[in-house]
Design a protein around this nucleic acid. Structure first.
Lengths: 242, 242
DNA sequence: AGGGCTGTTTCCGTCAGGCGGAAACATGGG
DNA sequence: CCCATGTTTCCGCCTGACGGAAACAGCCCT
């Protein structure tokens, strides 16, 4: 299990010694574990002898309800949204005090972001994260606001009181324009996705554009919120609520 | 490990007893294993007490080179292709004698297919599978052609000799129009994706349309092959070949 | 209320199979 | 040719996984 955990975005493929070193396991033990995982298909071996994550894991993960089902429902809406805007469309869920990207649509024309599906960020770091934070349980909010907030850019809100006020505003307005909080060159609009029209917040939908101004982002608000609405309703229908 | 394998598309969430029964493990053992997996994040528990695949697994799987990296590269091309056609765009790789879908783009307008990301099919069953089969090692081809071929529709090619001839034609033409082989209502165009312009075949790209005729599918051939070409070149560039 | 039923959780003594040190093996560069 | 680095195999020890059993928790039906 530790062996699987040693694979990350930064280290997509590694040799036996690296795995043993990273997990703290003796080489012979790592050798056996890797062999078992490989036999099952969770790991595969490249031509150069290094190990990488195999398709079996991909297959299992594809039935992850918080990933795949959400994706299946959201994808067509995101797709349509993309065609109307040609900007980066992103979908994320919360896990603990972190945000995890589960889907993204981007063609060749849109901004190149540093984020990928599967990536994690602190909730406070991104617009979508703040939307999720605004609707998270109190203990999660306290945990995030209790820690010092990292300033990614000169615009990042780092004062807990300001952030708390922003969370209140998000709950009132049902959307957020996040101006150069994570990167100096991007502005994001984000809005919650619920299960049904009034159910719990399940995910956040967002559009990321170049920082040519908040005004441009605002024009994207309505199509974004309409798409989120559509996803919410369909999720509710599938879950049998509303 | 058997516990993870017990989760499939047909069984996305199950309670402890079901897991124990499916894996053949005693309940107490299943209970412990599930607990460990849950603590790590590989499994999560729903409100109804059932277990489902968690986001940690999703995260690990997202660094699967045969899935994610391929997807990251192919996505924008598939996206552009979708916008030009508004048909189902699919990407698949081969694993053993099976085809695994790794990506799909479809908006609201396109046909509803029975296939999902992560699904597996026999290589001979689909157009994309036959493209992969045409470029698979000889032992794989022999294994597939040695078994009796299942007739999914009245049009399915089941004669090994005919299929072998088709494989030869695929290698010559670099594409295949597959007419109602898996379903009576769909026609597919498929073409290989290589690593670099002359490297090994790494995946298959395909478009699936309603069976309004082979002619319609043919018009999609050129944009499809251009997209596959683009993906191949970019994969090659990333892999440092060509 | 009571009892039966289904599913979950905890407990604990046993012992198989995982563990890892060490040595053999493989590769490749100086 | 030798040494460095990484991989694979071997095997004896011992620990922590195993699973039977019992307690626990809901839920439905009478």
């Amino acid at each position: 299990m530790a062996v699987l955990a040693s694979f990350g975005r930064d280290r997509p493929s590694q040799n036996l010694s690296q795995i043993a070193h990273r997990t703290g396991l003796p080489i012979s033990t790592a050798h056996r574990v890797v062999g078992e995982l490989a036999e099952w298909g969770a790991l595969e071996r490249g031509d150069d002898g290094t190990w990488y994550v195999g398709l079996r894991l991909w297959e299992i993960a594809s039935v992850c309800p918080r990933g795949q089902i959400l994706r299946d429902v959201a994808r067509p809406y995101m797709q349509d949204l993309y065609e109307g805007t040609h900007e980066n469309i992103q979908l994320a869920v919360r896990e603990g005090t972190e945000l995890v990207f589960v889907e993204r649509i981007a063609g060749h024309r849109s901004v190149d972001l540093m984020t990928n599906v599967g990536d994690r960020f602190p909730l406070a770091a991104t617009g979508m994260g703040r939307v999720l934070l605004a609707h998270a349980p109190a203990d999660i909010q306290d945990a995030v606001l209790g820690e010092p907030l990292h300033a990614y850019t000169s615009h990042t809100v780092t004062d807990p009181r300001t952030l708390r006020a922003q969370l209140t505003r998000i709950r009132r307005d049902h959307y957020l324009v996040s101006d150069r909080q994570l990167s100096e060159t991007t502005v994001a609009v984000a809005t919650p996705v619920r299960i049904g029209t009034t159910g719990p917040v399940h995910a956040a939908l967002g559009i990321v554009v170049t920082a040519r101004g908040v005004a441009a982002a605002r024009t994207l608000r309505d199509p974004l919120m309409r798409a989120a609405q559509g996803i919410s309703v369909e999720l509710g229908r599938r879950a049998g609520v509303d």
